[in-house]
Structures are given as structure tokens and as C-alpha cells.
Amino acid sequence: MSETINALNQKQSRLKFISTLKRLQRYPTTLIGFIIVFLFLIIALFGPLLAPYAYTAQNLPNKLQPPSEEHIFGTDQFGRDVYSRILVGSRDVLSVAGSGTALAVFFGLLLGLFSGYRGGLFDELIMRAMDVILSIPPLLLAMVILFSLGPSRVNVIIVVGFLYIPMVARVVRSVVLDLKTRQFIEAARLRGENSLYILYKEILPNVLPHLAVEASMRFSYSIFLVASLGFLGLGVQPPSPDWGLMVGEARTWFHQARWVLFFPAGAIALLVVGVGFMSDGLRRMLLPGGVSDA
């Protein structure tokens, strides 16, 4: 029984996927968003292979050169190729922001699910704790934590994850609260299903579309946060080609060589806009008719 149902589900989801692609054409921004994100993923995967120079290769006589045929994005204060550094640097941004988002989504989902489903004092305690985290400006909180933990890639991931748990948890909880009153949940209780089954089989599948939208939004915020921390020197440390870090370093040379600042900043902006478009599109596709339509 369940096998046949599964097989049919797969067939259906394939059909759904195709119709989704078709719908995508009607929203050019969504398409652009997906293309941008896809391109950045390719770059992150094959960055070092595509890069014409090693990202650490210094060439001091050639420092702060404007864009040219050899160095299409110019060179920085050590004569390193900005283009190569941006290509390789995409790995840092995407992996750090991505892992941070994954962390936030995982724990946010868990907290949101249980908090929303259990309700009562448990819910109250968790949500007030989340409020405490939310009440502090994220960048400030991130700085405080990183000052005490010391800046490193892992610590940045932890901080990003930690900061965005409350937002994910709140979204998940509100969806759970809405679902909890639906009668199919009551029907499940009436046939004696245990709470885990209800959470995992009845509620979770209905939360996932909301979660996907929320995750994509968190991802774009994470990119921003990671870049900001890099800029402040609290993120990934030199000589890593982190975009935020590159912008931070380039500040000093801004008057002599604007391209050193412009290209990494542009890369950040492009990625954030791309992810934003994508998340908008996801919302349109997965949650037609507003948020409450689980």
C-alpha cells in the first residue's frame, strides 16, 4: 500500500517539478535569482580550477593595477589577482553562510516544532529565550561572541547559526500553532497516534515549504552577516580571500585603486540579490495564497 503510494507520489512530484519550472518562466526575477545562485555554486565548486592565478600568489611590482587583460579585476596591494581571489573566496562565503544557515534551520526547526506543539510553560520559556537573543542587535551580539571565542571559520559558523535560530524557530512555531488546531491532527489524536508520529508525519511535511522559504531568506542574511564580520576583521582571517575581508582591506587603498573594493563588494551584492530573488520565488511557488496556507 504505502509503496504504491510512494511510487505515485514520486511520479506526482516529478510532474509538479516540471510544472514548477514552467511557472518559473512567468517570473523573470525568480529565474534570474536561481541562475545567479546556480552560477555562484558552480564557481564555488570549481573556483580554484577556473582561477588564472593562485589566490595567494603575490606580485609586488604589479600591485594595485587597474583591470587589464592579464588581471581582469585588477590586482590588490600585494599584487594578487582580484578575480582569482573572488572566485576562490566564493567558497568561503557560501560554505560559512551555508553551514551557519543549516545550523540555524536545524535547531530552529527542532525548537519551533516542540515549542509550538507542546505549548504551555515549555513554549513560554523557549520563546522568551529567543526574544532575548532577538532583542540584541545581531552584529553587536556576533562581535561580542567572536571577541570572546576568537575569530575563526568555525566560530563564525556557530555565531551565524546561533543568531538566526530564533527567527527560524518563530516561523516554524507559528506554522505549527496553526496546524495544531487543524482537524487532521485531532483525527490523528483520536486514533491514538503518539506525539512523535504526529510531529514527524502529520506536521513536519506541512512545515517544510515554509521552512524552505525561511531558510533561503536566512541564507541571504547570513551572507550579509558573514561579509560584515569579515569586513570588521572578526571573520575568516587573512590571507583567506573572504569577500568581506577583501572589502575591509581594500578600504585603505580606495583612493588609489577603487576596483579592489568594488569587485568583492559587487560580488556580495550580486549574491545577496540573487538569493533574495530566489527566496521570493520559492515563496511564490511553495506558499501560494499567503503564509497561512499550509
Binding site: M1, N9, F184, E193, E202, N206
Partner: peptide, 16 residues
């Protein structure tokens, strides 16, 4: 609201 939107109709009847 009385059927789970993500479950096929047969599943709802099979569970009990």
C-alpha cells in the same frame, strides 16, 4: 482541514 494536505486519501483511511 480534516485531511492532511500532504497525505494521499488512502493513507488517511489506512492509518486507523
Amino acid at each position: 482541514a480534516s485531511l492532511n494536505p500532504q497525505h494521499p486519501a488512502g493513507e488517511a483511511v489506512a492509518r486507523p
